[in-house]
């Protein structure tokens, strides 16, 4: 794994990427219990997911270390994968 790993921004990106995942998780879950068994509980999750991907895209653009194997890149990718995986639930649930 490459990367300088010494800058504050690496760690901020890491923490923010997983914070985006957590915020997305809590919001879509709250929607699902606010609208149990209703279509709104599923459809409202999609704009939240798009917003979360938007946040991750912003983090991706402002990385200092652009290599794929850096801490910041991998954290954004893992968070994106976890969000996409979660979103399967309203799509097919």
């Amino acid at each position: 794994m490459a990367g300088d790993f010494h800058t504050r921004q690496d760690w901020i990106t890491l923490a923010l990427a997983f914070s985006v995942w957590f915020a997305h998780f809590m919001i879509v879950w709250s929607i699902s219990i606010a609208f149990p068994g209703m279509a709104a509980g599923r459809w409202l999750a999609l704009p939240v997911t798009l917003a979360a991907f938007g946040g991750l895209w912003w983090l991706w653009r402002r990385r200092q270390d652009k290599t794929l194997a850096s801490v910041s890149s991998l954290s954004v990718l893992i968070a994106a994968g976890a969000i996409a995986f979660s979103t399967l639930s309203p799509l097919i649930g």
Partner: peptide, 30 residues
């Protein structure tokens, strides 16, 4: 981080909405 998105997998048998259980199931595997 992800361990904070799995708590309700202990509550699958309590009759939570299906989409909710899906979120926790996905996070538990992630």
């Amino acid at each position: 981080f992800i361990s904070f998105g799995v708590w309700a997998h202990h509550m699958f048998a309590t009759g939570m909405p299906r989409v909710s259980t899906g979120y926790f199931s996905a996070a538990s595997m992630a």
